[in-house]
């Protein structure tokens, strides 16, 4: 494999929840209760090779967006190490503030785009600041980027709220591409898009990947999209990576019970009305995660030691890792 462009070692991030200064104080005096600490990302180690696309899937709330924000360098870590092109973020950023050539497309375009700026400013401003294009030429540059993501030139003068959800997401993608990043993180970037626009954006991302070797981390709930676009896939559950493999391998022979459940539940175009089933077992809470394997309350093959021992991510076949105590390589 090529030299990694990005590397994370034992990355963790916790949040204190339900806390406010007053509540903390009140808790202190009244119940002496500790505020709840939530480990949104729990000891995650991943690498991304030059030009590679890594997919991240997993349950809602399992920490994908938090991981994305850690990797993008916009959220501090609680512990662990991040390296871009071999250099730790801290020293990299101390040297030069915009040395981290990572851009992010956010899950929720409405809250990530400044509502008071016109699209032309949203897309153009950062590019000028990063020195990608001289101010005198920024107009043409913005129109060109907008055309690339399929937005008409007259979008320049409009505000984010004047667009539909999908159009807004394209503005977010245009903004990220405008500063010519070396790595792109897409957090549910196509979730708001209908299939035909989604196809345009995915084809666009594939073009960019081919032409400029842009490395990508692609977060999505849509397993069809992940399968189509990604080279490797990481499956997360409650803050931890539970399976990591090449895309074809993962879809052909998933090993972790959670991954299997995900793939079985994958919606397909069909004319048969499906019988939707409720989740079996208790859905574990990230606020109070079960000991041992986090998945054991829902797992059909859980045994006693799953309730006690935390399974480490281990290689079960070359390039195929998983974190399950009960399943060996087949």
């Amino acid at each position: 494999m090529n030299e990694p462009i990005f590397e994370a070692n034992d990355l963790s991030r916790s949040f204190t929840v339900g806390s406010s200064p007053f509540r903390d104080l009140a808790n202190h005096f009244l119940h002496d209760r500790q505020p709840t600490v939530l480990r949104a990302v729990d000891n995650v180690s991943i690498t991304l090779a030059e030009g590679e696309t890594l997919g991240v899937v997993g349950e809602s709330g399992c920490g994908k967006s938090t991981l994305a924000r850690l990797i993008a360098g916009i959220l501090p870590v609680s512990s662990g190490e991040r390296r871009f092109r071999g250099e730790a973020y801290e020293s990299l950023l101390a040297r030069k503030r915009d040395a981290l050539k990572i851009q992010m497309v956010f899950q929720d375009p409405l809250s990530s785009l400044n509502p008071r700026l016109r699209v032309g400013e949203i897309v153009g401003e950062a590019a000028v600041l990063h020195g990608v294009v001289p101010r005198a030429k920024v107009k043409d540059y913005v129109v060109e980027i907008l055309a690339r993501v399929g937005l008409p030139a007259d979008s320049v003068g409009r505000y984010p709220h004047q667009f539909s959800g999908g159009q807004r997401q394209r503005v977010g993608i245009a903004r990220a591409l405008a500063v010519k990043p070396q790595m792109l993180i897409c957090d549910e970037a196509v979730a708001a898009l209908d299939v035909s626009v989604q196809a345009q954006i995915i084809n666009l991302l594939m073009d960019i990947k081919r032409d400029s070797g842009l490395a990508m981390i692609f977060i999505s709930h849509d397993l069809g999209v992940i399968r189509h676009l990604c080279d490797r896939v990481a499956v997360m559950y409650l803050g931890r990576v539970v399976e990591l493999a090449k895309t074809s391998e993962l879809f052909a022979s998933p090993t972790h019970p959670y991954t299997r459940m995900l793939l079985e539940g994958m919606p397909k175009i069909s004319m048969q009305r499906r019988k939707f089933m409720p989740i079996q077992g208790e859905i574990p809470s990230p606020l109070n995660p079960p000991a041992g394997c986090h998945f054991h309350p829902r797992c059909p093959i859980a045994t006693d030691h799953c309730r006690e021992i935390r399974p480490e991510l281990r290689e079960i076949k070359p390039g195929h890792m998983h974190a399950c105590l009960n399943i060996e390589a087949r």
Partner: peptide, 20 residues
């Protein structure tokens, strides 16, 4: 309006089951 596109398929199935 796009109620479950942000959810993993197992949770999505749970919600659709409840709504259904």
């Amino acid at each position: 309006d796009e109620p479950t596109t942000a959810l993993d398929v197992t949770i999505q199935a749970q919600i659709i089951y409840q709504i259904r």
